[in-house]
Nucleic acid binder design. Structure first.
Lengths: 243, 243
DNA sequence: TGTACATCAGTGAACGCGCGTTCACTGATGTAC
DNA sequence: TGTACATCAGTGAACGCGCGTTCACTGATGTAC
C-alpha cells in the first residue's frame, strides 16, 4: 500500500488527511449509500471548508472511485484471508471463501452495493478499478485451478458438451483475464455459473429481493452449487462450514 | 386495471393525465434511473407547473411507488405471456419464461434496477407493492408445481436431504406465500436456488458485473440449472429455446 | 545558522443550479334546484 | 332550461434547502543559498 516511506513531514500529514477523508467518506456511504456521498458533508465532518477537499481529490467522482477501489480491495482481502485459513487442500478454502464473501457483503451492504449493485448513474469507472475488481474473481479462479489439479473438482461436462456458440463466447472473452494459463471453455462456463449463483444469493439477501434464508440456507445452496460444479461429494460432505 | 368505467368527463381527463404523468416519469427513469426521477422535470415535459402534479400524486415517493408497481406488473405480464406461448406441457413454458424475464430486463435495464437492484435509499416500499412483486415468482412457482405434478420435474433431493435448520427456515417463511397448497421444504429450497441463479445471471448481465455471456450463455446456464432442479433431461434437450 | 523565496494546505465568500413542497389564486367543469 | 353554488385542475410565486465547484486570499511548512 505504501510504496516508499514518506520523507517530509508535509507528506506524512497529507497522507494522513487523505486517509481521514476517505474514512469519513466511507462511513457516509456505509450509512446512506453512494448517493449520500457529498463533499460538503465530508468537509463538515472533518471541520474543514468544502473547498479544501479539492487539494486532495479533483472531484466528487474521484473520491467515489477511491471508495470503489477500497471496497474491491476489502472484499478481496477478506476472501484471500479466508482461503488461507481454509488450508491448502480439501474444501475448507472454498467454503471459507464463499462464506467470507457473503459475510463481508452483509457487514458492508452499502459498500457491496457500490461494487455489485446497480451502477451509479452518471459515474464512469476509470481503468484503475479493473485490477482491484479482479481480486476476488482471481482468488476464486485460483481455487478452481487448484481443485482441478488436485482432482478435488472434476467438471461434469466435457468440452464437447458446451454448444459451439457458447464455447465461442467463453473463449473469446479476453477482457477479464487473470493470472496463469487459460481455462478450457467448459471450466470457464462452470466458474461463471457458480459466480452468478453466488452473486444472486448474496445480492438477494443483501438487497432483500429474496425471502431471507440466512446462513444455513446459503451454505446449503452453495454446497449444491459446488456439487454441480463437480466437487467431490465425499470431500465436500466431510468439510464443515467455517464458524 | 379499470375497475369501473369512468363516468364523468372530468374523471376521464383526470385518468388520462395521470397516465400521461406516469408515462413521462417512466421514460425519465428509463433514461436516467430512479435517482433521475424528479417532479420538476416531469412537469416541464408535460408543460405544467410543478405544483400541479400534487393534484395527482401526494409526493415524489408516491409517484415512485406507482412506477415500481408498474414495473413489477410489466415483467409479470411478459413472463405470464411467455408461459402461455410455451404451451401446456414440456419445457417450452419454462424456457420461455426465463428468457422472457431476461429479455425484459435487458430491454428495461433501469426499471429492472428499480425492482431488482440496489434498494432506493430513503425509500420505504408500502404494502401495495407486495402483490405485484409476487406476480413473477408466482408464475414460476406455478410452473414448478405443474412440472412436479406431470413428472417433468423430479427433485433430486428428498425432504431428509435438507438439513434440519435449513428446513426450519424454508417452512417458517410465510411472508412470501402464493396461491395453492404449500410446497415441501426441498421443493421450496430448490426453487429459491433457481431463482437466485436467475437473478444472478440477469443482474450480472444487466449491471455489467460479469463478463458478457449473451443469450447463448444464459440459455446454457439456465438449462444446467434446470437439470440441477431435476428436470427430465430428455424433455429438456428436446425443447428448443424460444426465438 | 540565518535569511529570502517557493510551495502548498486551508479559508471564506460566492456562483449558479436544481430540487420538493406550500399556498393563495383563477377559471373551467360539474351539480342541485 | 337556466341559475347559484361547489368542486377541482392548474398557475405562479415563493420558501428553504443543499449541492459541486471556483477563486482570490492568508499563513504555515519546506528549500536553497
Amino acid at each position: 500500500v505504501t510504496p516508499a516511506p514518506p520523507s517530509t513531514r508535509r507528506e506524512r500529514v497529507r497522507q494522513a488527511t487523505t486517509q481521514e477523508i476517505t474514512a469519513v467518506a466511507r462511513d457516509l456511504v456505509a450509512r446512506e449509500g453512494s448517493a449520500g456521498l457529498n463533499l460538503r458533508a465530508v468537509a463538515r465532518s472533518l471541520g474543514m471548508a468544502p473547498s479544501a477537499l479539492y487539494r486532495y481529490f479533483p472531484s466528487r467522482d474521484a473520491l467515489l472511485t477511491t471508495l470503489i477501489v477500497e471496497a474491491y480491495d476489502a472484499v478481496g482481502l477478506a476472501v484471500e484471508q479466508a482461503i488461507e485459513r481454509g488450508g491448502p487442500q480439501g474444501c475448507g478454502a472454498i467454503l471459507g471463501c464463499v462464506h467470507a464473501f457473503r459475510q463481508w457483503a452483509l457487514d458492508h451492504p452499502h459498500e457491496y452495493g457500490l461494487i455489485y449493485g446497480t451502477p451509479v448513474p452518471g459515474y464512469e469507472a476509470p481503468d484503475d478499478v479493473l485490477t482491484p475488481a479482479m481480486r476476488t474473481p482471481d482468488a476464486m479462479l485460483g481455487l478452481l485451478r487448484r481443485g482441478l489439479e488436485s482432482g478435488l473438482i472434476t467438471l461434469p461436462l466435457q468440452e464437447d458438451d458446451v454448444p459451439e456458440p457458447v464455447r465461442a463466447v467463453l473463449t473469446a472473452d479476453h477482457a477479464h483475464h487473470h493470472a496463469g494459463p487459460p481455462f478450457p471453455a467448459h471450466a470457464k462456463g462452470a466458474a461463471m455459473q457458480f459466480w452468478a449463483l453466488l452473486l444472486g444469493l448474496v445480492s438477494g439477501e443483501v438487497f432483500g429481493h429474496v425471502p431471507p434464508g440466512g446462513r444455513d440456507f446459503f451454505d446449503f445452496s452453495v454446497r449444491r452449487g459446488l456439487l454441480a460444479l463437480g466437487t467431490d461429494p465425499r470431500a465436500l460432505a466431510a468439510t464443515p462450514s467455517p464458524a
